[in-house]
């Protein structure tokens, strides 16, 4: 299978620097949560539901200095082409969950919500590459919808390296065959709050891969921002009338 043709076309017809179809919605579950969002990045689809900040059920979960973030990541059995039963205690799931918790513990102004718990449920309905990136973007939007103070958007994107060429926004097939990097960028800056590389990229190529991933993240941030503004306008027009 040819992942990147000599003419510069990828398996799904994109060029090296093009992202997949990105759709997002916020406030999708207004009656059952404090904040919610839905993300589609290509065929990767994630629902995120936020409860809180609220009083934790157990005293042990309360931190008197800052809010506690609890992420529950559940990947549906039907999310891949071949159905597979997944356990929540799988090593990879625990790793992704802690990665998300640590990223957002820094990006949310946790010091404003001492002694509270913010519970975030992520449901991955369909996965086709970039699951961690999609989860990060969904969490950012849902936390914004919940009105939780954050320093800025955390926009995440994947990029990989095919021979010498960096490729942006990997799909499932590409992700299986190439080394892939996931980053989370704070707003419009070039500061990274998340970086995950599960295999190897040559050090002299890393910079070009990071550069394209950061550019992609900025684009995602703009797309998420326009959705937040669209929803904000709907709300403010309801307030006015």
């Amino acid at each position: 299978m040819e992942l990147y043709s000599p003419e510069g076309l990828r398996i799904d017809g994109r060029r090296w620097n093009e992202i997949r179809n990105f759709e997002c919605r916020i406030n999708t579950h207004p009656n059952s949560s404090d904040g919610s969002s839905y993300i589609e990045q290509g065929n990767t689809k994630v629902i995120c539901v936020v409860q809180g900040p609220m009083e934790p059920a157990l005293r042990s979960q309360a931190n008197s200095n800052e809010a506690t973030l609890e992420v529950n990541l559940s990947v549906a059995n039907f999310s891949t082409t071949e159905r597979k039963k997944r356990s929540k205690s799988e090593k990879r799931m625990v790793q992704l969950k802690t990665t998300l918790e640590r990223t957002f513990q820094q990006s949310v102004m946790c010091n404003l919500y001492p002694r509270t718990l913010i519970r975030i449920d992520l449901h991955v309905l369909s996965q086709d590459g970039g699951m961690l990136a999609a989860c990060t973007n969904a969490m950012t939007l849902a936390l914004i919808d919940a009105g939780v103070s954050m320093y800025d958007y955390v926009a995440a994107m994947t990029a990989g390296l095919h021979d010498q060429t960096p490729l942006l926004d990997m799909n499932g097939l590409e992700e299986n065959d190439m080394s892939t990097l996931t980053i989370g960028v704070i707003g419009k800056s070039e500061k990274l709050s998340l970086l995950m590389l599960e295999d190897k990229i040559p050090l002299d190529r890393l910079e070009s891969v990071l550069a394209i991933a950061i550019a992609g993240s900025h684009k995602i941030r703009d797309l998420m921002d326009s959705e937040v503004r669209r929803h904000g306008n709907i709300r403010s027009s309801k307030l006015a009338s």
């Binding site: 629902i47 539901v49 059995n77 159905r83 449920d121 309905l125």
Partner: peptide, 11 residues
């Protein structure tokens, strides 16, 4: 047939 069900929230 594999029926997989996710209950996102319920009261």
């Amino acid at each position: 047939l594999f029926l997989d069900c996710i209950v996102v929230s319920h009261s």
